[in-house]
C-alpha cells in the first residue's frame, strides 16, 4: 500500500517524529511504499542540516535523509511553516525539499492510508 505521513512536531522535544520514523521504516520493511512525509507546524524543524545532537543520541535529521535516499521517500517541508521558523533552502538537510501545503493534500489524495504524528 501507499502510505502518507504527516509530522506536526519538531525533533527531540516530542516523540512524534521518532514514532513516525519507526513506523515508516517498519512499513517499508513490510513492502509498503511511503511515498511522502509532509512536515508541518514545528515538524519543519526536522529538516535542519544544522542539527547536531550529542554523539550518543540518535540523529533524527540524518535518519530521515538516509531513509529518503535509500527508499525514495519524498520529504516535503511546508514553505509557510518553514519560513516562520527560519528554515530555508540553505539550511535544508539532504533529501528534504520545501514546497506548499498543496503537497500535503495531494499526498492525502494519492495515498491509500494517511497517518498523522504530533502532539
Amino acid at each position: 500500500m501507499n502510505i502518507g505521513i504527516l509530522i506536526n512536531e519538531g525533533p527531540y522535544t516530542h516523540e512524534a517524529t521518532d514514532s513516525a520514523y519507526l513506523f515508516a521504516r517498519a512499513a517499508i520493511e513490510k513492502g509498503h511504499q511511503v511515498s511522502r512525509v509532509f512536515f508541518y507546524h514545528d515538524g519543519v524543524n526536522n529538516s535542519s542540516r544544522l542539527t547536531e545532537p550529542p554523539q550518543d543520541d540518535r540523529h533524527i535529521v540524518n535518519r530521515w535523509s538516509k531513509l529518503a535516499e535509500e527508499h525514495k521517500v519524498d520529504l516535503v517541508v511546508c514553505v509557510a511553516a518553514a519560513l516562520r521558523r527560519g528554515i530555508k533552502d540553505e539550511n535544508l538537510a539532504p533529501g528534504f525539499r520545501i514546497s506548499g501545503l498543496g503537497q500535503l493534500i495531494e499526498s492525502g489524495i494519492q495515498s491509500d492510508r494517511y497517518v498523522t504524528f504530533g502532539d
Partner: peptide
C-alpha cells in the same frame, strides 16, 4: 499555533475540489 496553521491547510484544500 495549531488552529491558525490548520486553517491554512483547509484554505489550500479548498483549491483541490475535495
Amino acid at each position: 499555533i495549531y488552529a491558525l496553521e490548520s486553517l491554512e491547510v483547509v484554505l489550500i484544500a479548498a483549491a483541490f475540489d475535495q
